[in-house]
Amino acid sequence: MTAADPGSEPRPAVPTASAAPAQPASPDQPAAPARYHRGRRLTGRVLLYLGLAGFAAFLLLPFFWMVSSSLKANNEVFTIPVKWIPEVFHWENYVDIWTVQISAAASNMGSWLKNTMILSVVVTLLQLFTGSFAAYGFSRIRFPGRDTLFLAYIATIAVPWQAYMIPQYKLMSQVHLTDTLWSIIILQAFGAFGVFLMKQFYETIPEELSESARLDGLSEYGIYWRIMLPLSGPAIASLALLTFVRTWNDFLGPKLYLRSPQNYTIQVGLKLFQADPMGSSLYGLMFAGSVLSVLPVAVIFLLGQRYFVEGVATSGLKG
């Protein structure tokens, strides 16, 4: 995947100082709050923490309910009145979820997690690459029809997927991609969302940077790779995270395309525990699986979120 790196230009290892004359030297704390009024700030801080803690509880409540339900027996999940704490803790749900056979073909939580991980990683990387690459074309190179093309891109987001998913499925079926992980990769990797997002962030990067890079003999591909990408760290990070989560949680797409249980993603697999209205649903197990499926995403977020608060200049120019 070196398409972004056409290697004919003489390239310095690190952008020269002249490549970034307009970019100010960055302080260690961008967007830092006021540093005076220390006494008042302490009370302010305590109040802020208290407020945030209450707010966090409000945000995490459904997750708490999920955890609680995952420790209940199947017919005790939905009751009147609501039981927030299980009477008997069914810890075995967390053991059974790894071994229980819910479909006829051999597949389980482990294989679903593996498939979901593969899809999320590949889709995210493809979306990042093609999105940021195309965004450069839309934001920095002027050619006739550009704006119309861009608007068409954005407008297609407005067509609900369920309206064209059957024609799309027929298409994929003709090239025999249904029931392979490829189908989901192709389906998810080329959206307009990433293009639009990256284009908006490129517009905050001063044009003078590219100009001086051009004078230094860098090609457009070189500018994309050496100037624009490094300077759009937070945008890349947020696009990566959002794409990852969306692919991770996607239901209808994988449901429609991945038919063999060994190809299932985690969301499709867990749905098997919910029977149709005639049968009995294994809700305890289903929520145990749901809790487990959230954890990888939470860890990735926790690790990755520092990239959102590191100033662009910091991450970009401190080689």
Partner: peptide, 11 residues
């Protein structure tokens, strides 16, 4: 997305 945007404002 707003957080990412905030990082582009020079300190």
């Amino acid at each position: 997305l707003f957080l990412a945007g905030l990082q582009t404002i020079p300190a």
